[in-house]
Amino acid sequence: MLQLTNVSFKPQGKLLLNQVSISVKAGEVYGLLGANGAGKTTLLKAISGDIKASGSITLYGKALAQWNRRELAKHLAVLPQSSQLTFPFSAREVVALGLTPLSLSKAQAASLIDEKMHATDCYSFADRAYPSLSGGERQRVQLARVLLQLSQARHSPLLLLDEPTSAQDLGQQHNLLRLTQTLVKKEGFGVVAILHDLNQVLRYCDRCCLLDQGRVSAVDSPDKLLSDERIQQHWQYQPQRVVLGNGQTALI
C-alpha cells in the first residue's frame, strides 16, 4: 500500500534521510528501528507530510501530493505521541474531531463515536475533560479519534505511530499494541510504528526497517533482523537472550 522510493531529506545541508526505499503492505505492523538520530521520526514525518522530502512516496500507487486532502486523511492517520490541549474539550469531543474529513449524518456520527470509544475502552470517561485524563487515557482517546477518522476508508488505511507507548505504563503499552495488532490482522490496517523497546518489536512487528544515519541498513522480520551483532553495532549494547516457554526469544 505504501511505497517509498529514494526518499531523501536534506535541510540546511544536513542529510537526515538518504535514499530511503521501503514498502509497507496492508495487514502488517512495520517497525522503524534505529538509535537516536537515525532518522526514524524524520521518516515518519516525511510519510505524514509534515516535511517535504525529495523522492517519491505513494499510497495505493498515487503520490501523496496528488491526493485530495480529505481523501488522504480518510486513509492515512497519525497517532500523536502526546497531545496538549489548551482548551478543555471532553474526551468525546476530542474523538469527534475525527469526523473532520468525513461527511456523515448526525446519527451515523454519534453511533460511530460510541463504537470507537468502546473499542478503545474509553467510553467510561467519555464526558470527562481531556486535560484531566492520564497519559494512557489520553492516548486511548486519541486512538479512538484516529480510528473514527479512518472509519470511512475505501482501501485498507495506514496508521502511523510515533513512539505510541512512551507515556504509558506497562499494561497500557501492551493493551495499545495488542489493539493495534487486532486492527492489522482483522481489519487489514497497515501500521508503521516507531518503537524503542526491542522486545515489543519482537512481539508485535511483522517486519522492520533498521535505520542508520538516515539510510536503510536492513529490512527483515524482527527475529532475523535483531541479531546480537546488529544490536551491538547500532545500540552499543550486548544483549542476552532468553528463550520463552512459547518458543519466542526475549532480550535482556
Binding site: D50, K74, L97, T100, P101
Partner: peptide, 20 residues
C-alpha cells in the same frame, strides 16, 4: 467551526485531519 476545533489539537494534527 470544525476546522477551528481540529486546529486546537495542534497544527500538524489538524493537517493530518485533512484541514488546509
Amino acid at each position: 467551526a470544525q476546522a477551528l476545533n481540529a486546529l486546537l489539537l495542534g497544527e500538524p494534527e489538524a493537517r493530518h485531519l485533512g484541514v488546509d
